[in-house]
């Protein structure tokens, strides 16, 4: 998974920085953003495979950010992270195209598994689209 590019969006500096460090140690290409707005800016600069997104942030909240992200990069997978679980917000996130919705405190290895899965899904979808394009060309 060395090539996996991850963006971590969370307004809690401590959490984000520790998390970034731990992901770096696991050989991921990681970036961090402290707000939804900042995250969307980063998206324009660099492609990401997977985003870890905190649901509750001041300013643009997680759900809004998710909506924008999926509009900009439909194939990029977003894993929502929350410390305040609610069935309603969880399902709302899923309907907007989140890959998964995980409760804090999250086990880092479980999150690694999730990211791997999300990345697989993204690659498979890209391949499907490539095949569809080939088919289109053949016509």
């Amino acid at each position: 998974m060395e090539e996996l590019k991850v963006l971590v969006v969370d307004d809690e500096d401590d959490f984000r920085e520790t998390f970034l460090k731990r992901l770096q140690k696991r050989n991921l290409d990681v970036s961090g953003a402290e707000s939804g707005e900042k995250a969307l800016e980063l998206l324009d600069e660099k492609p990401f495979d997977v985003v870890i997104l905190d649901v509750k942030m001041p300013g643009m909240d997680g759900v809004e950010t998710l909506r924008e992200m999926k509009r900009k990069r439909p194939l990029m997978e977003v894993i929502m992270l929350t410390a305040h679980a609610s069935v309603e917000s969880g399902i709302e996130g899923m309907k907007l195209g989140a890959f998964d919705y995980i409760m804090k405190p999250a086990d880092i290895d479980e999150l690694m598994d999730k990211m791997r899965q999300a990345y697989e899904k993204k690659s498979i979808h890209e391949e499907k689209i490539r095949q569809a394009k080939i088919k289109e060309l053949r016509k």
Partner: peptide
């Protein structure tokens, strides 16, 4: 209860 209900709902949805 909330965390588990949320987790199970999300997984069933998936």
């Amino acid at each position: 209860i909330r965390a588990n209900c949320t987790a199970i709902s999300v997984n069933v949805y998936k």
